[in-house]
Design a protein around this nucleic acid. Sequence first.
DNA 1: CCTACCGATCGGTAGG
DNA 2: CCTACCGATCGGTAGG
Lengths: 213, 213
Amino acid sequence: MTISQAVARTAKASAAKSDTPDQNSGARQILNATAWLLRHRGYEATTTRAIAERVGIKAGSIYHHFPSKDAIVERVINEGVLLVHKAVMSALDALPKKATPRDRLQAAIKAHLLSSLEHSDYTSASIRAFAFLPPELRKTCRVERRRYEDIWQQLMKDASEAGYIPKDVSLDAARLMLLGAVNWAGEWYRPGRVPIDKIATDFAQIAFGARRT
Amino acid sequence: MTISQAVARTAKASAAKSDTPDQNSGARQILNATAWLLRHRGYEATTTRAIAERVGIKAGSIYHHFPSKDAIVERVINEGVLLVHKAVMSALDALPKKATPRDRLQAAIKAHLLSSLEHSDYTSASIRAFAFLPPELRKTCRVERRRYEDIWQQLMKDASEAGYIPKDVSLDAARLMLLGAVNWAGEWYRPGRVPIDKIATDFAQIAFGARRT
DNA sequence: CCTACCGATCGGTAGG
DNA sequence: CCTACCGATCGGTAGG
């Protein structure tokens, strides 16, 4: 699958979700509170009562907007993945046509880090809380996540063909190493210290060597 | 701090823990069950009743061996970090004296992956469950974890001086990228597919280029 | 190591 | 969106 095909599929999947709550609607406030809790406390600690408290309502009222806790969580996780997905696609599209595969990789790393560390609790939640979701829920959310990771497979392929990855190295290993590095960043990154731009540049340089100018 | 100093400190810390339960004692069975649950289900899902069920006792009986759930969890996490720590140190010590900094890095990656993916639920638990531990417990466990990560700081310094890391790249970024890659491997690795040896070789080659022979 | 229980909290519901 | 509640489950304890 090419990247433009991935975009088309993503747009389709996004359009298929009929109801997108306004920014200040009750449903959106519940989603925002859940995203924060998933990011900072994890799945089990994200209780309906904790969500309600952050919104300023009573726990029972949540069920006026959503059928279950897991429906809210699924929504948050999937929106999170989609946000990173779109951020990375936008960054790639904004690149000049003469951009090398290495430029594209670095732009993708930067966009992923920015969206998952700075821009949204949703994206961070989708990365951090995923591992210990209940099995069925994890399986459901894996679909959207896989769709996103396909982008990286294509980026790796292009980088490999351009000679940025040694021939005897598995592209899966390269992809998983890089995704590991950017996903794990949530465990140590603190705002206001090293700028994300510098982290992204360093990551790209370690993995793919100096920029070819 | 040199690596040999780190070994000395580790040995000291290990000796300071007076009571090490035998392999089949009640306490050890409880720790084993907790390690498995932390690895596969996370902190909150690791309930005293789930632990008891895996051991084949009743929940109340746990408190004959440990004062609280968190005391068990702390023990498991710290033992896990110490196991990876020792595995990596042993692998480095087993290297011939002529081993390059790059050889040492690759050996450390391999040892970390082996111990956290294949050899022990403790090591995997210490990596996967750490993020959502209750704040005080996380703070406590951070001490031993930091001690382990110091090894990597030294490895990076040696690799940098030997020219394996570009001069303008932050050594912290390099260390955190590599730790991210190996720690995140628990999210996708499945036994019996790609051998860990190959993963370790590929990771090292992506990060530090071809082996200098 | 067990029985029996505690106060608190969980996801979710009835009825308004 | 609230009150009031449900059955289940949580970490932990008393007393044996």
